[in-house]
């Protein structure tokens, strides 16, 4: 997963391709009349075709269907044909559907908490397991373990831990010597989202630890040695050398956590069903609710389109911001 660090794929017409063109011409003459270039065209199409067909059918296709459906009142099982209703679904989403508005707010709240916590803790873990110490592989394995555990399993497990008579409360009560009485974390509107944030970070942070670790290990040792010669303290070395050199990694970490956080669904579906009082309902949870439980697929498609626009806008803004910082 080295996109953040390594170069881009050369565009057609770049120097490398131009060079290939001339060597391809050589190959053609050596082959004695075999039409290498036309052969290459045909071969390339054949290589790419299965992927393109599947992509059109299962990625682009549903996106286009979704776009078209969002302007209709289509239902999953309905005797009448869908009718074109213009922008009614969007008007309903923004003016009548208070729960959807609340879900957008909850989704942004979740992302605003998870992105810095998971990104920051991931970097701390990476710095810890990047030290040349005995047992670092053990710690890497342990910190990474939740990542390979299914979110379904983890949500069930933590739902149990968060119960009023669950392990989280008994641990807190033990740590405070009985002063803390405990509460049902997922049934209280003011703590439910926080509880989901903690377990989501617990599950996902190991993945980003590994990404940061790769970034750290790509920094040449000599850079630190030079810093040490100049008398930099470890703290200065971190802020002045390590962090600036990790910028490409941080862009990747930022964008991947944001997209994952905006798509919050499984945890909510299994732990809270969007409750209590809609305090953990998210955009994707509403899409699935409206589309499947209530079978209003036209309306769900409109919500999907809104969601896509939000994620796209955020990705573009993040790219713009991080790019500007690249050129001071």
């Amino acid at each position: 997963m080295a996109i953040a660090r390594t170069g881009k794929i050369p565009a057609p017409g770049s120097a490398r391709v131009a060079e290939r063109r001339s060597s391809a011409a050589t190959a053609r003459t050596r082959r004695g009349g075999g039409d290498f270039q036309r052969n290459e065209q045909r071969a390339a199409r054949a290589f790419a075709l299965p992927g393109i067909i599947l992509l059109l059918l299962f990625v682009i296709g549903p996106a286009v269907v979704s776009l078209a459906m969002s302007f209709t009142n289509a239902r999953l099982i309905s005797p009448t044909a869908p009718e074109f209703i213009g922008l009614d679904n969007f008007r309903r989403a923004f003016t009548e559907d208070a729960l959807f508005g609340e879900s957008i707010g909850n989704t942004f709240l979740f992302a605003a908490l998870v992105v810095p916590i998971q990104g920051g803790l991931g970097l701390v873990l990476a710095l810890l397991v990047n030290q040349k110490i005995a047992g670092r592989n053990f710690f890497r394995t342990v910190y990474f373990l939740p990542v390979i555990t299914s979110m379904v399993v983890i949500s069930l497990l933590w739902r149990f831990l968060y119960q009023e008579d669950g392990l989280v409360n008994s641990a807190l009560s033990m740590l405070t010597a009985g002063a803390y009485a405990g509460q049902a974390w997922l049934s209280n509107p003011s703590t439910a989202m926080g509880a989901i944030v903690v377990m989501s970070v617990w599950q996902g942070v190991g993945f980003h630890m590994v990404i940061w670790l790769a970034g750290l290990q790509a920094i040449p040792e000599e850079v630190y040695e030079a810093g040490e010669l100049d008398g930099a303290t470890p703290w200065q070395r971190f802020w002045r050398i390590t962090l600036p050199l990790l910028k490409p990694t941080s862009v990747f970490v930022l964008i991947t956590i944001t997209i994952a956080a905006m798509s919050l669904f499984v945890q909510v579906d299994i732990m809270t069903d969007g409750g209590p009082l809609g305090s953990t309902s998210t955009i994707v949870y509403q899409i699935v609710q409206k589309g499947f439980q209530q079978q209003q697929i036209g309306y769900a498609a409109a919500l999907s389109l809104i969601f896509f626009c939000i994620v796209l806008a955020m990705a573009l803004v993040q790219r713009r911001l991080t790019r500007e910082r690249d050129q001071p």
Binding site: L55, L57, F58, V59, I60, G61, P62, A63, V65, S66, M69, L76, I259, M262, S263, F265, V284, I287, V288, G291, F292, I297, A300, A301, S304, F307, F308, V311, L312, A315
Partner: peptide, 20 residues
């Protein structure tokens, strides 16, 4: 197209996917 679909979360198209 491939770069554009990278940011398209699977959950956003799941409703039309089932229909399809």
């Amino acid at each position: 197209f491939i770069i554009a679909t990278l940011i398209l979360p699977f959950d956003t198209t799941i409703v039309p996917m089932v229909y399809l």
